[in-house]
Amino acid sequence: MLRKEDFERLSHFRYRLRCFLRDSEDICRQHGLTPLQYQLLLHLKGFAGREWASVGELAERLQAKHHGTVMLIDRCQQLGLVERHPGRDDRRRIEVHLLAKGARLAEQIAERHQPELRHLQDEFGHPGWSELP
């Protein structure tokens, strides 16, 4: 059974998460991107082990439907942020690559997130927060 303290911790965590997301949305808009466009760029820049991702991998990272991810990639391609290439091993698989403009925006926006990330790490890094339900 959950205790009052469990609900307090969870409530505070969700509050701080929402504050972070709201600030992130504002930062993205100041750079002329939607939050989803930034997340796409971030996932391409941060994809482990390579410099591109497939549409399916991006859909998973974004927790979005395949067709919605394709539409997002279309818009980012129109803005000159990403480009598509046929897969190296499987030509049916589409690779999405970050272009220089997209990489610059991802870096600028990610840099603006660092102070809040450090603050959250300090706040939630202490032992009492590891017991979140």
Rank of each mutant, 00 (worst) to 15 (best):
M1G: 15
L2Y: 15
R3M: 09
E5W: 09
F7W: 14
F7I: 11
F7V: 10
R9G: 02
R9W: 01
S11E: 14
S11N: 15
H12P: 06
H12W: 12
F13T: 10
R14D: 10
Y15I: 05
L17H: 13
L17M: 10
L17Q: 14
R18N: 14
R18D: 11
R18G: 10
C19P: 04
F20G: 09
R22P: 03
R22T: 14
D23Y: 10
S24L: 08
S24A: 14
E25I: 03
I27D: 12
R29L: 03
Q30Y: 13
Q30G: 09
Q30K: 10
H31W: 15
H31S: 03
G32A: 00
T34V: 03
T34I: 02
T34E: 12
L36G: 08
Q37R: 07
Y38E: 05
Y38C: 00
Q39N: 11
L40Y: 04
L41I: 04
L41S: 02
G46D: 12
G49T: 09
E51H: 10
E51R: 14
W52H: 14
W52V: 04
A53N: 06
S54I: 01
V55F: 13
A59N: 01
A59G: 07
E60D: 15
E60S: 05
E60L: 04
R61Y: 13
R61V: 00
L62P: 00
A64G: 04
K65R: 12
K65E: 09
K65D: 07
K65C: 00
H66C: 01
H66M: 04
G68M: 06
V70M: 08
M71A: 14
M71N: 15
L72R: 09
D74F: 04
Q77V: 02
Q77K: 12
G80Q: 04
E83C: 01
E83L: 02
E83M: 02
H85W: 13
R92E: 08
E95D: 09
E95S: 05
V96N: 03
L98I: 06
L99M: 05
L99S: 03
L99P: 06
G102Y: 14
A103C: 07
A103G: 00
L105A: 00
E107N: 02
Q108T: 01
I109R: 08
E111G: 11
R112A: 08
R112C: 04
R112K: 11
R112Y: 05
P115A: 00
P115H: 01
R118A: 13
H119V: 06
H119S: 10
L120Q: 12
Q121N: 08
Q121H: 09
D122I: 06
D122G: 11
F124G: 06
F124Y: 14
P127N: 01
W129L: 06
E131D: 08
